[in-house]
Write a protein that binds this DNA or RNA. Structure first.
Lengths: 200, 200, 200, 200
DNA sequence: GATGAATGAGGTTTCATTCAT
DNA sequence: TATGAATGAAACCTCATTCAT
């Protein structure tokens, strides 16, 4: 007799539970007992799959680090006008942050405890997103849509910085903000601040 | 006979040590033993001044929460042209972040553990900075320097978000960035993106 | 199709590995996991052959306890002169100890944990060796080669005690001793100390 | 109000209990909990005085390693005739072994786990006893009481080996032996085996 | 005001063993 | 016959905190 539903392996269940709890209570604030309970296994079982709590943490991080960058989005962006592209990017990015909230939480809280691992993630994901967007801006420079005297990399950083900041405010600090309006403000400022005007 | 040097009280020494260690290793990652050692007192002594580790944490946070907002800066900003004012604000803000790094570290790491306390700080400091700057933007709207269709509060948020993001990148993720150029890019974008143009 | 090589049964492989590890690290210092690994079987397999770790230990001991006593040697000794016989016995005994080092190690370390089992071995082997040798001494008394006022049993004990002591010193305490000279010193002392002189 | 009786410090009580239990059940067979209970302290307290179980073990060994050698006995031996001196030494040694049974037990059982520490003890104590006795034998050679062709060091080893062996048999293997007769047999054999005879 | 001594509660991890196949 | 998966019990050790001085 075979049970088809709930086919998640024990290992996956542990990883999931760990991700959830680490992000809610931090690495030290989460006990292996809690993780085991959440995953519905005995505490020992956890150590059959992961050599230690620390190893489990690293694995949780690794399991999260394969995020979509913007790469696949760029071709579509090139078909839109600049404003629309910015708006699309912003929405995509904020949605991504929302979806990967747990990872973000962990990155922010454990930065000082596992700097190596966290920085690697940052490079792989955040950094990569910025880099790809910077390329897009460079492309727009050549096509005459964006000012030439803007440093694409720092501009890219600034754009996502604004958006990240909004995300922090809403999700971390639980401020009641109008997400759409906030995003539009960012888009507008960035659009007006970077687009090439006639006679420039 | 009076000893003049090293007049810091025992309590202050404990608070200082705690701030330093909490910011480096997090709340749970720091032991009362370590704090005591760093402060050069016996571990028990710590409990004479603070009822518990948690109470010490709160006190550390409180002791850090009296930060200058922008309030005193505004009058000076009003005397400068808009671009210069933005630049001044940016530099002031980044310097402030740098100076209060420890507090920032703690806020980011302990957000989920002590949401109440942290949020209060956020309100008191970050939020306040944004609010004051928003007022300045409103002032510039009335004087015709800033576009009217920009939401001052979100714009304010966006501006400091960009800058905060640069700070994170440099100080947390230890990226080698050209701080001045990065800041200028932000200032330029925001300036161009918000300033009122003729015939608008 | 028959595989001829490596015909050791699984059970034997487990026993061998257990002997080796128990003697190197003690009973508690050896894990069933290690034994299984050394024997190249899964940990569970071990429990198919032995009801428990303790049972395995007992079986290891039992498997080792069929040692040659001196019985077969005695006829030959009787054909030698007394001095030569002592020398032969000494060398035979030291070689035996060396060969059964693992068992000795276990007996010394686990004496207090499994007194019953260990003592039984002692009786079966050591004791038996002493007894047989005592008989030989008694035989020499009747033939007028050994003093009559010597207690054969205690003398026997003393003789093997000296030799065992040398073994301990060399193999356990890793002292650099000249084995041959040490043995000869023992033989000489015992010979001179027990042989019957004229007019005695 | 001062309590005079039972002035043993907590640390000493822990050391004592540890010695007792380690010698009865081995290092791994003894739990820190048991030691604490035996010493009438909380388990944690043990860790205030000793950094780890291993450290406690080492300290136990160290605390036991200052044993009397034979040094003080030698002058008295020189005043006795050789036979009496041997007898005195034998009794003294067996009594010492009995008194330090715990240490002996530990040395035998943990030899393989802590070879360094144990060997050091062996050098300091056992070895030293043998050395001092060898010097005594050398002295007797010059005074013409002991044969010159006997290696004093190995003879010394052999003598204590016989005695140690008796001790093992009685105390470890719990054999019912007549201690006095056993000792006398040893003494007699060694005496007759080493004393210089006329015309030799 | 300051501290050495002592501890209860709890954390991670290991171990021998059982279950189901 | 052999084993991968799972576990209860318990080990060592740490932490924040109290007591008595």
């Amino acid at each position: 007799m075979l049970v088809i539903t709930d086919m998640k392996t024990t290992k996956d269940r542990i990883l999931e539970s760990a991700l959830k709890l680490f992000s809610q209570k931090g690495y030290l604030g989460t006990t292996t007992k809690e993780i085991a309970k959440e995953a519905n296994v005995a505490e020992v079982t956890l150590f059959r799959y992961f050599t230690s709590k620390e190893n489990l943490f690293i694995e949780v991080i690794k399991s999260q680090s394969f995020l979509p960058t913007l790469k696949d989005l760029i071709p579509k962006l090139k078909e839109m006008d600049y404003y629309k592209a910015l708006e699309t990017t912003a929405k995509y990015y904020v949605k991504l942050l929302k979806k990967k909230q747990n990872l973000i939480h962990i990155m922010l809280s454990e930065m000082f405890k596992y700097p190596e691992e966290i920085r690697e993630i940052h490079n792989k994901i955040i950094q990569e997103v910025h880099r790809v967007f910077a390329e897009y801006l460079d492309y727009l420079k050549t096509s005459g849509n964006v000012k030439n005297d803007i440093n694409s990399v720092y501009a890219s950083s600034a754009y996502f910085g604004m958006l990240f900041s909004i995300f922090l405010k809403k999700e971390l600090f639980k401020k009641a903000i109008n997400l759409n309006e906030a995003i539009h403000t960012c888009v507008k400022i960035f659009y007006e601040g970077t687009k090439k005007r006639e006679f420039e």
